[in-house]
């Protein structure tokens, strides 16, 4: 079974685009659209990489990130944050909260793929070798 990505995002078209890009590369892409239950979803699915949108219904991406990092189980889990609000203070806030990588929408498909691969590799030796 390949590596798993949990995509937490509420824009259907963007979900479809990312799913297409990653699954073509052999990733299993699971999705979650609601901010309120996102942390719980991560705990349940334990993905290799989390792709987290900032603007989510009911709970902000930053809050989800902070909650995940506060949990020992997810302290080291690779989290790629996506935002459409391209301000510097958003990036700063994300980094302060312990984000693994911060990416601004619109993104380049290849950059997205590279980043997910890299994040999965650094966090998982076996997989990292596989993509190395």
């Amino acid at each position: 079974m390949g590596k798993r990505v949990l995509l937490i995002e509420d824009e259907p078209n963007i979900i479809e685009a990312i799913r297409f890009i990653l699954s073509r590369d052999g990733w299993t892409v699971e999705t979650h659209a609601d901010g309120a239950t996102a942390v719980e979803a991560v705990g349940r699915k334990r993905p290799d990489v989390v792709i987290l949108d900032v603007m989510l219904p009911n709970k902000s991406g930053f809050d989800i990130l902070r909650d995940l990092r506060a949990d020992a189980d997810h302290a080291a889990r690779p989290i790629l944050m996506l935002t459409a609000r391209g301000q510097k203070k958003d990036r700063d806030m994300a980094e302060a909260a312990g984000v693994s990588y911060f990416m601004t929408k619109p993104f380049s498909n290849s950059e997205m793929l590279e980043t997910v691969r890299r994040l999965a590799g650094t966090s998982d030796e076996a997989s990292g070798e596989g993509h190395g």
């Binding site: 963007i14 990312i18 459409a84 391209g86 619109p106």
Partner: peptide, 12 residues
Amino acid sequence: HELRTPMTSVRA
């Protein structure tokens, strides 16, 4: 946000 969201889809 409102502008980038559709643009993200378009670009992707």
